[in-house]
């Protein structure tokens, strides 16, 4: 596709990120969740999955869904630099999504974690996968993280024992609105990764194939009574 000069000026500079190797996790229900990096062709399913949650105020789904929708769309339209999206899917159906951004070789900027399928720690597994990508594959030194919900604060700040750098504001300032910045350093990651991060590689081809074409959920526990195309 030809890109005109003005559009070239609008696009952020991109670096080629190391790919995230797909993995598979057996959830407590016995279902297998494939975790893989998203591609441009996944965007319609991703946006369609996130969109209905914009109206769910409970547990800050509205804030996270709005922001994630914006991030995925901006990535698709080349308006955010070096972003990656990981998706967890069960039989191809999207169970959760995480977004994040590579800032430079030292720093990762964690964006959002959205759990669709609840009660099976899908969000916790995907957040861990995101940190794994930053620290193991992109080989950054640390990841900056903020929480926008009490659940997020407990899950990330407390359970990972993140370093509180909010007192260093504005020198340390997360991209998401200047809320207090916490940091996952390599040392902290090494201390928790054995109990937080899991998954088997390589993913058998027949299992990986189930995640090839992502499906939007037809129902959400967050939206009782809601049905897609109803």
């Amino acid at each position: 596709m030809a890109i005109d000069e003005l559009e070239k000026k609008l696009r952020p500079p991109e670096v080629q990120l190391a790919p995230y190797p797909s993995k598979v996790i057996t959830l407590a229900s016995g279902e297998t969740m494939v975790v893989r990096e998203c591609r441009r062709e996944d965007v319609p399913a991703l946006l369609g999955t996130v969109y209905p949650l914009i109206e769910v105020a409970k547990d800050y789904y509205d804030v996270v869904a709005c922001r994630m929708y914006n991030e995925i769309l901006s990535w698709y339209r080349y308006r955010i630099a070096n972003m990656f999206t990981l998706v967890g899917s069960v039989n191809g159906e999207i169970a959760g999504i995480v977004t994040s951004r590579h800032v430079d070789s030292h720093l990762g900027m964690s964006l959002h974690t959205l759990t669709i399928k609840r009660g099976l720690r899908v969000g916790a597994q995907l957040f861990a996968a995101k940190m794994e990508h930053h620290l193991e594959f992109l080989k950054e030194d640390e990841v900056w993280i903020v929480a926008e919900s009490p659940i997020g604060f407990k899950r990330w700040m407390i359970e990972y024992e993140l370093e509180d750098r909010s007192s260093q504001y504005p020198a340390v300032r997360h991209e998401l609105g200047g809320v207090p910045t916490f940091v996952l350093t390599r040392k902290l990651w090494d201390a928790v990764k054995a109990v937080k991060n899991t998954g088997t590689r390589p993913v058998p081809p027949e299992v990986l194939k189930t995640a090839d074409k992502l499906k939007m959920p037809n129902e959400y526990v967050q939206l009782p009574g809601w049905k897609r195309n109803a």
Binding site: I25, T26, A28, S29, T198
Partner: peptide, 16 residues
């Protein structure tokens, strides 16, 4: 339902 493989025997059980 949950499976014994997922919550006790399998490679991800300790984290799941």
């Amino acid at each position: 339902p949950v499976t014994i493989d997922a919550i006790a025997d399998g490679p991800s059980a300790g984290v799941v």
